[in-house]
Design a protein around this nucleic acid. Structure first.
Lengths: 132, 132
DNA sequence: TACAAATATTTATATATATGAATATAGCGA
DNA sequence: TCGCTATATTCATATATATAAATATTTGTA
């Protein structure tokens, strides 16, 4: 198979995995610190099953790594550069005129939160509580 | 709307647009030189309508710009950095064991072709002939 | 046992894509 | 100017795919 076809196919798959808001948010949250499924569920305000499913998609493409710790499963990025690379893609977002203000101010906010230099990882810190 | 939601949604849309092999190949081909629909059709070996449709997707997200010239319509990248950014995503492709060799050699090949320094653009050069 | 997470299944929805036909636009020649 | 051809876009339709959300079930662990 011609290599261009192989590679464009693989890239397309990668982009497919990234083409969901929840999965992007998971990746950005994981850049800050390792998190359990329950913690992500809470942060993203989604059901447990949903969090698990989206993590499974990321896992199946080796973008995140799971690490069991007691009854919790912590996730971290296989390659933290992924989160940075995604942020670099922000410049290619070209909203339509009417949304320009709203979206570009949102981008600025997000760059401060997701884009700033990272705190030293507290990877094994367990959140105190976790409901449902 | 919380800005994280806005931005992750916009990014997801962008990734969605890029999650098709043909569209990726179009972007990489356009990095080398501006091309007409017919030229792309030929290079990618797809139908004329298919080329036009995929270009419409890219156009609707402002990733490519059309410029009419006589009876041809030339396309170019709105932001050539897009092609480079996509190539930078290659490092996040983590194939399964069995495909590792095939895919990583394909990636190497592609990096030579799509990743090398660009020739000065001959943007308005019209291809001599064009069948079908 | 009870909790956390993963897995499996189903359902519903959306979406993409290929194809062929119709339409539009531009250049060319009589 | 009037056709004729080349190029490109659009539309309609059928098919395929995917995809997500919801639910239920299972597994592992304290």
């Amino acid at each position: 198979m011609p290599y261009r076809v192989v590679v464009s196919g693989e890239l397309a798959k990668l982009f497919g995995v990234l083409s969901h808001p929840i999965r992007i948010r998971i990746i950005e949250e994981l850049q800050q610190e390792d998190l359990t499924v329950g913690a992500l569920r809470e942060i993203l305000d989604i059901s447990h099953a949903a969090a698990s499913q989206q993590l499974a998609v990321l896992r199946s493409h080796h973008l995140v790594i799971e690490k069991r710790q007691g009854r919790n499963v912590f996730y971290h990025l296989h390659n933290p550069a992924l989160a940075k690379w995604i942020m670099a893609g922000l410049v290619f977002i070209l909203p339509d005129r009417r949304e320009v203000d709203q979206i570009s101010s949102a981008i600025k906010n997000v760059q401060e939160v997701w884009g700033k230099d990272l705190k030293p990882k507290k990877s094994t810190t367990v959140k105190k509580s976790q409901s449902t």
